[in-house]
Design a protein around this nucleic acid. Structure first.
Lengths: 186, 186
DNA sequence: CAAATCTTTTTACAAATGTTAAATAATGCA
DNA sequence: TGCATTATTTAACATTTGTAAAAAGATTTG
């Protein structure tokens, strides 16, 4: 299975573990701007983007705020729900034609008991997400909007194919402000 | 051991696992404003505050920035180093007379192989930290400085005993700006 | 193709936050 | 206690970012 080629790079699990995991895994193809997970739902699926891209977003005072972008091989979960069981006011939406791998999280967590190595693999994957969220925190806490934009725009791909309103809210600024920054930077 | 009384609330591990953990655990008493972990070092210790408080901080362009506060029973680690093995430009410092529990992380990670339940316990603890970091991200991304201050000041304890300059940098603003907000709020 | 819709930029002005420096208040120590 | 140090607030002005509305550009669709 192709997914394991990717996961093996993180932590190699036994072939029995792979066999046990396979039935929990689905492939889903989404069109552009499709909802993948509705706002208000509980996170019961762990997604990995195979190609295309998706975002986590929520509404705050009527504004659509993008919290996270995910591209090829990125994991995408609403962690505050996945790890607490609580519903979340965040949703997941594709931003273009996107192929995703979906892993049923309740079944996965049950496998943790029997397969120590599955628990380890996902522990490592989520630790990595945790470190990413700390990096982002740093940049929101003390970089200016311009610095944050320049940092983000190193990923040419992202800035080219994602509507600027999403990039603006992701950076914690308005779209007008982002336009000004772009004009200034050139 | 008193630590386990606390950890049991998260996930109960076997008594063999506890026995294996005990030798990795130390108690350390620090005076006010003591460095616990130096800037530039690698994170090889997981701390839990027993009483008192501590912060994670770093310097950005000469400014002292507080990234995290930890109080009673809070875990405190420099995750971007703990999980990557890379040195970090962040340090840990106490803010008052503080008693901490210190767990040797390299030894702990070795125990993960033998004691599945130890790995699970710490997996859950770190998942919780991950969720906390997402909550903080949300507030930095789209709340105003005033909203963030009001949120933080629900924790009366914190605002009373910690120098405002640290609170200001934690909120991502200058101390002058925080003073203004406080004057306005009353 | 052309109208309709959506996205991005621009403008003008308002509000929030930053910077520097000084004033005041609080704290620690001889 | 009282001096020295540190912490906090205030003031004046600069810069950044927000808001609302309009203009310009791009994309979609009948």
């Amino acid at each position: 299975m192709e997914l394991f080629k990717h996961l093996d790079k993180t932590y190699k699990i036994s072939s029995e573990a792979k066999k046990a995991l396979e039935p929990l895994i689905g492939h889903i193809q989404y069109h552009k701007n499709n909802m993948v997970q509705e706002i208000g739902s509980r996170c019961k699926t762990i997604y990995i983007v195979k190609n295309g891209c998706a975002r986590i977003f929520y509404y705050k005072e009527g504004n659509d705020i993008t919290e996270h972008f995910a591209f090829e091989n990125d994991m995408i979960v609403r962690a505050e729900s996945l790890f607490t069981g609580q519903p979340t006011s965040k949703g997941i939406q594709t931003l273009e034609e996107t192929e995703m791998i979906a892993i049923n999280s309740s079944k996965l967590f049950k496998l943790y008991d029997e397969y120590h190595d599955i628990e380890r693999l996902f522990r490592i994957l989520f630790e990595r997400e945790y470190v990413n969220s700390i990096k982002r925190l740093e940049s929101l806490q003390f970089n200016s909007a311009k610095e944050r934009y320049l940092e983000l725009s190193k990923n040419k791909n992202l800035v080219q194919k994602i509507p600027l309103k999403h990039i603006a809210s992701y950076l914690g600024i308005t779209q007008v402000s982002l336009s000004r920054i772009r004009a200034e930077v050139q």
